[in-house]
Design a protein around this nucleic acid. Structure first.
Lengths: 113, 113
DNA sequence: CTTCTATATCCCTTGACAGGTATATGCTCA
DNA sequence: TGAGCATATACCTGTCAAGGGATATAGAAG
């Protein structure tokens, strides 16, 4: 399951689908990917249960399915317990993240994906 | 970062390290992996910041670092919002079904958001 | 110093997978 | 029915990462 989300283009597709369902063509245009590439990634995502599709005339509308994300979350659980014992480290990390973002405005930046 | 945890042996190593720090040899024995394999995976994990090591005589003790896990968690956040809406809807639906059957509604713990 | 133990690295082979191009499939509408 | 659009698939090729085996490094012990 992790191999699925290891691919950057697939993560981009998933991020797109968070807001709403999209057709293949819409994904293709927004992500500037070739159509076969999009279709192939969607195939992988569908086989892995990350998305499902419905037919709308000649189009296919893809939307997210929650289960695999829950599995990722479940895998993360033991480590979450671990890191919550390291709140100090968390705060240091966030400080570093803030400093890295020094170029950006203090108003909420748009998510870049 | 996802490529790192996409590898099953690496996930096994990380799971081992949740309980406590381990030497390379201990990991090698518990997971029945060849020593160079363990060392190479640990190298990858260390470079990606998932683990760190300290020297103990000829041994190296590896332990988890929290930051990359937090990043995974951060990536998951938008999807978590998405799927918790789904689960809530499902529960409401099930509640309705229960009531239609005239049965008592058994209170269930809410999933953590 | 020599040897033993623990770990890291090097080299090589192999397999998986991603992208590109061409083509197939399927639906719509004139 | 045929043209045209939207999507899926087949085939090819290059890249990259994992595992195996040999070897290098470094500390410990005698």
């Amino acid at each position: 399951m992790f191999e699925i989300i290891a691919e950057p283009n697939r993560r981009a597709i998933l991020s797109l689908l968070v807001s709403s369902q999209q057709s293949v063509g819409e994904i293709e245009r927004q992500l500037r990917m070739a159509q076969p590439t999009v279709s192939k990634h969607l195939r992988v995502l569908r086989d892995a249960g990350f998305v499902e599709s419905t037919v709308d005339a000649q189009r296919r509308l893809y939307r997210l399915k929650p289960e695999p994300f829950q599995e990722v979350d479940a895998w993360l659980a033991p480590f979450r317990r671990f890191w919550s014992a390291h709140v100090d480290a968390l705060e240091r990390h966030l400080d570093i993240m803030e400093k890295k973002k020094g170029k950006e405005k203090t108003t909420r930046p748009r998510p870049r994906t």
